[in-house]
Simulated assay, not measured.
Amino acid sequence: MGIVRKLIGASRWIENVAAVEAPRLAPEVVAEFEAELSAVAASDAYLTALGGSGAVAGADPLDAALLGWRREVDSVPMPSAWRNDAR
């Protein structure tokens, strides 16, 4: 009988929590968040495009600098992993 009362109490608690309305954000806060989120998405797409195999620098000097650094890093072969043979 005790477990049934606990389950009924839990279900009532869940109903009460579900009935509480979540706080609303001001429209200007939502707009600012969406603008920041779209800026992050645009930066991510930009870096993904520069990281692609067929990346070509555009008219923007930042494109040329980032692509140049990427090609410089890619041109140097990575050394093999360090090993400790002294046992």
Rank of each mutant, 00 (worst) to 15 (best):
M1H: 09
G2A: 13
I3M: 10
V4N: 11
V4F: 08
R5P: 00
R5N: 12
R5L: 14
R5D: 14
K6P: 00
I8D: 04
I8E: 07
A10G: 10
S11V: 11
S11W: 08
S11Q: 08
S11D: 06
R12H: 06
R12V: 06
R12Y: 06
W13A: 12
I14K: 03
I14M: 10
I14E: 08
E15L: 10
E15C: 04
N16C: 09
N16L: 08
V17R: 06
A18L: 10
A19L: 03
V20K: 11
V20I: 09
E21P: 00
E21T: 09
A22C: 05
A22D: 15
P23W: 03
R24S: 12
R24Y: 05
R24A: 14
L25P: 01
L25V: 02
L25I: 02
L25G: 01
A26M: 06
P27I: 03
P27M: 03
E28S: 03
E28G: 00
E28C: 00
E28Q: 08
V29I: 12
V29T: 09
A31Q: 06
E32P: 00
F33V: 12
E34L: 09
A35Q: 09
E36T: 02
L37F: 14
S38V: 05
S38W: 04
S38Y: 03
A39P: 00
V40R: 07
V40D: 13
V40Q: 14
V40N: 03
A41H: 11
A41V: 06
S43D: 15
S43I: 11
D44F: 10
D44W: 10
A45C: 07
A45S: 12
A45V: 04
A45I: 04
Y46N: 01
A49Q: 13
L50F: 03
L50P: 00
G52R: 07
G52L: 04
G52W: 02
G52P: 01
G52D: 13
A55S: 07
A55K: 00
A55T: 01
V56I: 15
V56D: 07
A57Q: 02
A57L: 05
A57P: 01
G58K: 05
A59G: 15
A59K: 13
D60L: 04
D60Q: 05
D60V: 02
D60H: 08
D60Y: 03
P61E: 12
P61R: 08
P61M: 11
P61F: 14
D63P: 01
A64L: 14
A64H: 11
A64D: 15
L66D: 01
L67Y: 01
L67H: 01
G68L: 05
W69T: 08
W69M: 14
R70T: 02
R70V: 07
R70I: 11
R71P: 01
R71L: 14
R71M: 13
R71K: 15
R71Y: 06
E72S: 15
V73Q: 10
V73A: 09
V73I: 15
V73P: 01
D74G: 01
D74A: 15
S75F: 04
S75A: 14
V76P: 00
V76D: 04
P77D: 11
M78Y: 07
P79N: 03
P79W: 02
P79D: 04
S80H: 12
S80Y: 07
A81R: 10
A81E: 14
N84K: 09
N84R: 11
D85V: 09
D85P: 05
A86G: 05
A86C: 08
A86F: 13
R87Q: 14
R87D: 15
